[in-house]
Design a protein around this nucleic acid. Structure first.
Lengths: 354, 354
DNA sequence: TTGTAAGCGTTATCAC
DNA sequence: GTGATAACGCTTACAA
């Protein structure tokens, strides 16, 4: 058997997959050196005649570059790890945009969904590290701190979104949680509401804290005392919105307005209200963080705080490309984007009766 | 410098990443052979004393297994390619479940989103092939046919969901589109509707065809002639739902009921209706394929056809694990799941006036 | 420009 | 069991 032969299918097939042609097969078939084929594959200059030989050989052998082998040499996998808590509408849209933006530079996302489970978070980070992803995008979830520190030490670029983890030197893309929250609550105050309840997110997440602080600031500035019973601490999740809505609305003096710190909990609130036959904005004015299709279509539309999802995805991408390009060793950057308050029918002036 | 030294950080760092300890460093530090460390890492039997040495060395060097190198040897990456058209609610839920199920066997999803763009589809499949994903999950989108055939020849296991591509020998997870559609339209007929419009999906997708056939079958069986103007051919997308709703509802004799072939187009229909101040079910009865959070919360709730998303994710996972396990060469299997029709407030008996 | 060959970090096959 | 060592398929000096 000469070196000119196509790949020999009688070799033990690796894991049931057929033996694919290698760069060596191409080189042999084309009658050039391996190095030349490699140069061609990487888009560098090649003698015209050789180029044609190589193209023909690639075609003939159905050659497929083995990115795994290349990754081993170059220590570049073109994979970006993405660790998100859940596939809610916000994340779906962000992921879609991230995938599209990263595609432009030949990269793809490897996705893990942690559901706030510390074991999963650790497992995901270990997996990403072992797979040598080029970079990592994740919600700044505190349970990850230790593993993340290790990754940073190993030189893996990381971009946090949504929450920052104080003290970690990594790139960050955030929104003005506090300010947006402040403005949203002020909108309720403008409408003469005084009994305003808040559903907070997890306060160990920086976004949860800041959104709550915005609420507090607006109330304090308006000179409105906050009844402790109107402060409901949630977990970001739908079922927590459901439970807390019940608790709040069954008070002797239920709130006339409610500020909910994220989309998921608002879904829970709406479910409970619907079950009870209560209607927005007559029985309650409601404003929610996150703007999603449902809030636009719901009757009435839900007044909400729209995070600039495209902007977030773009910011993340640009940070990553910078880290993977020339700005490898630049100091960590934090990009903070602002939100829009979108007025819809779920908020109205406090009824005189209340 | 002896072999016992920890990795030397003065070596040229690959792409700015620190040089990580290798299995060789661990072996040297532990005073055993490389092969022994490998055996240990892969959970095989090791002499007790060596085990402790190795564990200590791993700890000391912060050793991290390089999955890329392992993948190159074993031709197993533990990555599953996933190619979806868009991140709508259906896919979000499916992806979340798939990711969770696959995690159990140490695998992760690499995701591409094609937006029905043929170039992207081709690019994605080439990327997956180059990255040597262990298997591929994709919507059976016809533009992919040629590339997919090649992948099958190369021995990459593929699971189609949603649509089948006739003539391709691959595993498939489908739902009873035709039957579900048939039952849904029969529900409208039971409610005495006669002017029933349909918004079809793309008819070159098998799901689009089958859903349309179900409509036709129900109408024919009931002896209802279908006015051609009530057949609106859509693209699955929201804007197409919006446009077609307008076209249909502005007919001289608009339909009294509408069957919409997917979630995205229904969003478009609802948007248009909302803009016009038209209400379900008074101005129109509507039933939609796909059951999502919005349809449950909407007022009135949207009568819909619920695909068994968990079942789909489980079926896909089991097919993949079988292919990657002992059933490597089993003949292709197709799993077909049934759907539930969920009755809500968007459908009611045809008003006497109509 | 091209050919040659030394790795990259594993796994797997041998003798021992 | 363990230790040496040959792959795996590619990139990249270096020499020609």
């Amino acid at each position: 058997m000469s070196d000119q032969d196509p790949p020999d299918d009688t070799l033990p097939p690796a894991r049931g997959r057929r033996r694919l042609a290698t760069i060596a097969d191409v080189a042999a078939t084309a009658g050039v050196a391996i190095g030349t084929v490699s140069r061609f594959l990487n888009g560098r200059e090649i003698r015209e005649a050789n180029r044609h030989q190589i193209e023909a050989a690639i075609e003939k052998l159905s050659y497929r570059r083995n990115a795994v082998a290349a990754a081993m040499k170059t220590d570049t996998t073109h994979m970006i790890g993405l660790l998100i808590p859940t596939f809610d509408e916000f994340h779906s849209e962000m992921v879609e945009q991230l995938a599209t933006l990263l595609r432009a530079s030949g990269r793809a996302l490897v996705i893990y969904c942690h559901s706030h489970d510390a074991d999963v978070i650790h497992g995901a980070l270990d997996f990403f590290a072992a797979q040598r992803v080029d970079a990592l995008i994740m919600d700044g979830v505190t349970q990850a701190r230790q593993r993340v520190e290790q990754l940073i030490r190993e030189g893996v670029p990381i971009v946090f979104y949504n929450n920052e983890i104080p003290g970690l030197a990594a790139d960050c893309v955030l929104v003005e949680n506090r300010n947006a929250s402040y403005r949203a609550v002020n909108h309720l105050i403008d409408l003469r509401h005084e009994r305003i309840a808040v559903l907070t997110g997890e306060l160990h997440d920086s976004s949860g804290r800041q959104r709550f602080e915005g609420f507090e600031a607006a109330m304090a500035e308006a000179g409105l005392a906050v009844d402790r019973r109107y402060i409901a601490h949630g977990t970001w999740r739908t079922n927590s919105g459901y439970e807390l809505a019940r608790r709040l609305m069954q008070l002797n003096k239920p709130p006339t307005a409610m500020y909910v710190s994220n989309y998921g909990m608002t879904i829970g609130v709406l479910s409970w209200l619907k079950e009870q036959g209560l209607r927005l904005p007559d029985d309650l004015s409601l404003v929610s963080f996150d703007d999603v299709a449902l809030f636009r279509l719901y009757e009435p539309g839900i007044t909400s705080i729209a995070q600039p999802i495209s902007g977030i995805a773009q910011a993340i991408t640009s940070l990553i490309e910078a880290r993977l390009g020339d700005d490898r060793d630049a100091p960590p950057r934090t990009i903070t984007l602002s939100c829009d308050i979108i007025l819809r029918g779920s908020t109205r002036r406090r009824p005189a009766s209340a």
